[in-house]
Write a protein that binds this DNA or RNA. Structure first.
Lengths: 240, 240
DNA sequence: CGCGGCTTTGATGTTCATCAAGTAAAGTGG
DNA sequence: CCACTTTACTTGATGAACATCAAAGCCGCG
């Protein structure tokens, strides 16, 4: 993950056939036939392998991204590498790009794939143009934007108010309920990344996962996690 | 502050004369004459006194708000009153409403005036309609939205990575530079609210303010604060 | 095979929340 | 307007929660 190679978009591997795009309802719900066609032509679709970086903070903003399939992390790095914070994990249908692309000239956050991921890429100027020509589409973007950022803020508020056990419980439930919709899953992140996501040290992430294992709340086998006592986990999440 | 009375908007006191609206450039930059006129007619303007609540979380979303003049806090309450968190302080030109109004049916956060404040209020359906009919305006809202939420997230990241002294330094600099543009100001919030804003206890807010006073970094007289050694304060903000 | 990063556990120390107690200030009712 | 109540502010003492440091095993990779 640390040595992630940078993906180049100059030569797209695939041009999306929009007729089968799972995101049709999002992007095309409000667009005319011509606009839809124009979008298809401008859009490139790229498969990014687990561990690869999609964009890095500080680069000039050229593209709008959305996740067609897979899982990515949005994160902020600092001089002191150990201060890195993960802002959120983004799933298909999340417009993670929305955070900065509409008001700034440089990406403020970096984005990397946690699983093999298909990203759809549109030139930002093109997106801005079709929004300017299509009010309902702009409204759609506002709804999505509002939803994504509200969720991020809500996460921060939630995590802030919890002790370490509560945070681990929260993140496990988030993986089970929001990300995988299963109580048995393979953690897509390292212990260190969990720590960066919920603001604690790697050692304590491990320690508390071990506690939960000893208390028969979860079963752990490397990256495999199974939630055995969800009621208990919910209790810990709610009341430390 | 705790017993803040609720402001009612049924009978607006003043109807805004938009020709002198300081927010003309924001709201009207992209609108036609007719639209501008329609906005003027739909808009009501209200003076909210310090301490009064403007909206409460959980209420159905009916209006879009923006701050014409004054200072407000956006905050989230919990059953346990001491878990209240202040999300941000909003100044004129901030579209604090943007957080939830475009995707939800209830306000998620409460908003109260920290100083006598002039709020402009537009029915949310009306705002959505003109956006749907006016792409450039929608684009303008996206820019503002993107900027506001990015700042909130940036605040969280900043505060998260700092110890208590760093947090106090950060918030003092924020008041001096972003809010008042002066190094001598009257704190618009109680020590408790400072605590809710930067995630610490009231006692420690006071303790560290006292430390800074003893170290001649600031001068304090009740709510009056003067920054005496800004270089030092910046150092503490950056490196604990 | 050996190196570097990830994982795990234990021991130690620091930071910070909590508790307690008192003063000052501000609002409330007679 | 004054007694009364409540809320805000302040300082100190204590303990708990959490970070840091250290050491060792593990795994993947060149």
């Amino acid at each position: 993950m640390e040595k992630a190679k940078k993906v180049e978009f100059q030569n797209p591997l695939i041009t999306c056939d929009c007729s089968d795009c799972v995101l049709r309802t999002l992007m095309f719900q409000y667009t005319s036939e011509e606009e839809a066609l124009a979008i298809c032509k401008s859009k490139i679709q790229k498969v990014v392998m687990k561990g690869e970086t999609i964009v890095s903070q500080g680069e000039p903003i050229k593209n709008f991204f959305y996740i067609k399939d897979g899982l990515v992390k949005l994160y902020r790095q600092f001089q002191n590498e150990k201060d890195t914070q993960i802002i959120c994990l983004a799933l298909p249908y999340d417009y993670v790009s929305l955070l900065t692309v509409f008001h700034d000239s440089e990406y403020r956050y970096s984005m990397a794939a946690l699983e093999d991921t298909t990203v759809c890429i549109l030139p930002i100027d093109f997106v801005k143009n079709i929004i300017r020509n299509n009010g309902p589409l702009g409204m759609g973007f506002l709804e999505k934007s509002s939803l994504s950022t509200d969720r991020i803020i809500n996460n921060y508020i939630t995590i802030n108010g919890r002790n370490l056990r509560g945070r681990i419980a929260f993140i496990l439930l988030d993986f089970a309920d929001r990300v995988y919709h299963r109580d048995f899953f393979e953690l897509p992140v390292s212990r260190k990344e969990v720590a960066q996501l919920i603001g604690m040290t790697t050692e304590n992430v491990i320690r508390i996962l071990s506690e939960f294992r000893q208390e028969k709340i979860i079963r752990i086998n490397g990256k495999e996690i199974e939630i055995l006592d969800k009621k208990r986990l919910n209790m810990i999440c709610e009341h430390g």
